[in-house]
Computed example of a mutant assay.
Amino acid sequence: MKSILSFLILILILSCKPTESKTQLRAENIVLKERIRILEASDTLHTEAAVELQNMNVVYRGVSNPIYISKPNTLSFEAKAPGLTKKDSLGNYNLNPGQGNTIDIEIKSKLKNGDSLTEVKTLRIKDIKPPIGTINNIGCGSMCELKLKKEELTDAIIGAKINEFLFDLNFYVTSFKIKMPHYRTIKIDGNKMNVRANDLFTLLIPNDNIVIFDISVYIRGRSNYRLKKIAPIIIKIIE
């Protein structure tokens, strides 16, 4: 736009009558330059702040969501929201949302014409979907059955995971329960099979079914976040 108006200025200068004074030409030039400045400022005002996420306009509660924020054609800008922290000067932030279904990010910017502008970007907050239990890092949820040898249960490690999730969550199991044929339910503290469970595993025979359930898990660094109920591990003993 600026180049077009500059061209118009040149045309006006070349088309002026010889009788016009240099003072008049200077005055007209000043007026046109002021129009250019106003138009440039107007264009700047219509450039909105951009907030880029990895997953549309959704952020997850219980994790640190990476966010990129930019505000073109400004001298500077500042972004604020509960749980929002700045990582660097390139527009990278982390957002740890709290309660509620949405969160507002307030972006205050200083424009090139000296004015200030405040915008609000609203993002949706979603809870982390329920994890599934794993044994030695293997798990497929309550809708399927793992086929394992009884020897594979000895000293096995119980964990949790979420399939096809954007973030790598650091789950830690604090306790779980085991139900085996002909035996009462066993509760184990920690994430590893204990001596009592290992002894009972030696008595299992092919086609016996085992269920590992009530898996208590928290996210390292976010122990106060309450995860939804974890899908159990269903096992069938094979040769």
Rank of each mutant, 00 (worst) to 15 (best):
residue 103 I to A: 00
residue 56 M to T: 09
residue 235 I to E: 01
residue 12 L to P: 02
residue 87 K to A: 10
residue 132 I to N: 12
residue 84 L to Y: 00
residue 178 I to S: 10
residue 81 A to C: 05
residue 59 V to H: 02
residue 29 N to E: 13
residue 194 N to F: 10
residue 16 C to N: 12
residue 224 N to W: 05
residue 29 N to S: 14
residue 42 S to M: 05
residue 225 Y to L: 01
residue 153 L to D: 08
residue 157 I to K: 08
residue 206 P to Y: 02
residue 201 F to I: 00
residue 162 I to W: 04
residue 23 T to A: 13
residue 231 A to N: 07
residue 90 L to A: 08
residue 98 G to N: 10
residue 202 T to I: 09
residue 123 L to W: 15
residue 32 L to Y: 14
residue 103 I to C: 02
residue 164 E to H: 15
residue 51 V to C: 06
residue 191 N to Q: 09
residue 26 R to W: 03
residue 20 E to Q: 12
residue 235 I to L: 14
residue 167 F to A: 08
residue 38 I to F: 05
residue 148 L to T: 03
residue 172 Y to K: 14
residue 145 E to A: 04
residue 55 N to P: 09
residue 224 N to Q: 09
residue 103 I to Q: 00
residue 37 R to H: 10
residue 44 T to R: 00
residue 124 R to T: 11
residue 224 N to R: 05
residue 95 L to Q: 01
residue 73 N to C: 02
residue 109 S to G: 03
residue 113 N to F: 06
residue 205 I to N: 08
residue 195 V to S: 10
residue 80 K to P: 01
residue 27 A to S: 13
residue 210 I to M: 13
residue 219 I to V: 09
residue 203 L to D: 07
residue 223 S to M: 08
residue 210 I to H: 11
residue 153 L to H: 01
residue 232 P to F: 06
residue 127 D to P: 08
residue 187 K to P: 04
residue 199 D to E: 15
residue 111 L to I: 07
residue 222 R to E: 14
residue 46 H to M: 11
residue 106 E to I: 05
residue 179 K to F: 01
residue 172 Y to M: 11
residue 113 N to K: 11
residue 175 S to A: 08
residue 99 Q to I: 06
residue 125 I to G: 01
residue 16 C to H: 07
residue 58 V to D: 11
residue 203 L to Y: 12
residue 192 K to W: 12
residue 22 K to R: 06
residue 161 K to M: 15
residue 195 V to N: 12
residue 169 L to F: 13
residue 127 D to F: 06
residue 136 N to S: 11
residue 170 N to G: 04
residue 234 I to E: 10
residue 133 G to W: 04
residue 139 G to W: 00
residue 72 P to T: 07
residue 172 Y to T: 03
residue 185 T to E: 15
residue 94 N to G: 01
residue 71 K to V: 05
residue 27 A to P: 00
residue 65 N to S: 14
residue 172 Y to S: 02
residue 207 N to C: 03
residue 27 A to K: 14
residue 183 Y to M: 11
residue 148 L to S: 01
residue 197 A to E: 00
residue 106 E to L: 04
residue 235 I to R: 03
residue 206 P to A: 04
residue 62 G to W: 05
residue 174 T to Q: 13
residue 50 A to I: 15
residue 145 E to L: 15
residue 199 D to V: 04
residue 181 P to E: 04
residue 114 G to S: 01
residue 204 L to R: 03
residue 232 P to I: 06
residue 138 I to Y: 05
residue 67 I to A: 02
residue 14 L to H: 09
residue 175 S to Y: 00
residue 195 V to R: 07
residue 16 C to I: 09
residue 183 Y to E: 14
residue 97 P to F: 14
residue 210 I to T: 09
